[in-house]
Amino acid sequence: MTQSPAPAATASAPAPPGAEVTVSVEDVHVSYRVYDDPETGLKQIVAGGRRRRFRTIRALRGVSFDVYRGESLGVIGPNGSGKSTLLAAMTGLLPLESGRIRGRSRPALLGVSAALRPSLSGRRNIVIGGLALGMTREEVRGCLDEIADFAGLGDFLDLPMRTYSSGMRARLLFAIATVRIPEVLLIDEALAVGDQQFRNRSRRRIDEIRASAGSVVLVTHDLKEVTDGCDRAIWLDAGLIQAQGDPAEVAGAYESSVGTT
């Protein structure tokens, strides 16, 4: 690395000595161009003001941090602070305005829901989801039972997915998404759904991933999840890192800024 990035809003980052960096985020800026659609009542049309234009949203405004091997990093912050954009950028899917993101392997977002078809059965969806994640049909077949077991589908395996309860659906999505474990796993609020049993099971699965020398980056609104399950935390607000470091301290600082509810 040429130099240590030090944007203004970043608090000191405790780098575990000798720890191996799996992903390095350096001064990343991302903006979106969205279509501005103002109210168009009779008054506006008469006034000739019905002009639609694009507005630029600056989702990330200079974010730098490293992810280390074997750690689980929690990202907290209010809605619209850029947390999800950050995860998308870390996969390399988003064009950056400036800055760079490097890694030893490509991080993968936990999530296949967009690939699945509600009108098809769970069994067919497991195949579709596996293929979307880059597996071959043969590989998917090999772990079909395991996925169905984890999701607890039972007799529902051959019924259309739209007939599943939301808990069953969440379990299936999580089971498919974690069937192939990437070196760096990015999770966007996946654990907020499902019952306690599912949360315990998915927590164990995440611990397995970390134990196999991977890293986990977790975006969540559940501060308890960060203080209990993460080794480090980042507080993101308005596209900038407000604080990073010990989960309890960061969560505490975030909480006091929001005000206790």
Partner: peptide
Amino acid sequence: GDDGPPLFDL
């Protein structure tokens, strides 16, 4: 770090 593949631009 010394071991593992080098970082590449994602």
